[in-house]
């Protein structure tokens, strides 16, 4: 089976710090996909092109609410609806690794592909007037000049909580596949049949069950915890000022 590279994003771990957003912008504005231009960057209504955004949702009703930070980028669908509608062939899905890309030299900026994406993953660059989207950092994941461990998308490397996993979801032994399989990975808007390659791991309740033997030091042979002798009131204190 062919390769399908994808991200697996763990919503249980994401803290909404936007490090993936800034590292994505930094890498891709200067890389092969760049520049990702901004307009009015220091004005009242700054706007610009991003491949990746972190959104925040509140689930539930006060006081029983939960905050969900939700990183959102192109999902590199296995059946991408944005590709066949492109009149020029600028949008394409790579056969070798399943990454959906835009050829910026062919794009005419008709925006039709963005209409055909239910996730709003595509953005027109305000200056270059061509459609842009996440490339899964295609210009760094195959870069043999980089150390092996750094051949990952910039967002994955930047995430301080390791909420983002990167791998081939067609390889059942990859870290990404295992996470999807074992931690209930799901796809967004499954109702449209787009089969997104990127998956999300759900929020989970993390708890700990304490057993009685964990409350005392079972490795203490004398079982004398809590029965240490008290120093006498006139014994010298550590700071020579206070008393016991």
């Amino acid at each position: 089976m062919s390769k399908q590279l994808a991200l697996v994003i763990d919503l249980n771990v994401c803290v909404g710090c936007h490090a993936c957003v800034t590292s994505c912008k930094e890498w891709n504005t200067q890389g092969a996909a760049g520049p990702l231009t901004d307009q009015n960057a220091y004005g009242a209504d700054p706007t610009g092109t991003f491949f990746n955004r972190v959104q925040t949702f509140e689930v539930g009703e006060f006081p029983n609410t939960e905050t969900v930070h939700f990183p959102k980028s192109c999902l590199h669908c296995e059946d991408p609806p944005c590709v066949p509608v492109c009149p020029t062939g600028a949008s394409y899905k790579r056969a070798e690794d399943g990454i959906v890309l835009v050829d910026y030299d062919k794009c005419i900026g008709c925006k039709y592909c963005s209409w055909a994406c239910p996730y709003g993953a595509r953005e027109v660059d305000g200056e270059q007037k061509v459609m842009k989207k996440c490339t899964l950092c295609v210009d760094r994941i195959y870069d043999a000049k980089l150390p092996e461990a750094e051949r990952k998308p910039a967002c994955v490397l930047a995430c301080p909580t390791s909420a983002r996993l990167f791998g081939d979801i067609h390889d059942p032994e990859s870290e990404a596949s295992r996470a999807i399989r074992e931690q209930g990975g799901y796809a967004l808007m499954p109702e449209w049949g787009t089969h997104p390659a990127n998956h999300y791991l759900p929020r989970r309740k993390t708890g700990k069950r304490l057993h009685a033997d964990e409350l005392e030091r079972h490795d203490n042979p004398l079982k004398v915890d809590g029965r240490l002798p008290r120093p006498s009131p006139d014994a010298p204190a550590l700071d020579d000022v206070t008393s016991w």
Partner: peptide, 18 residues
């Protein structure tokens, strides 16, 4: 997230986007 009540708090940009 399977919950009937979900409200957006932030969309990741203050000045709008494409």
């Amino acid at each position: 997230v399977k919950h009937p009540k979900i409200t957006q708090i932030a969309q990741g940009a203050m000045g709008g986007s494409f």
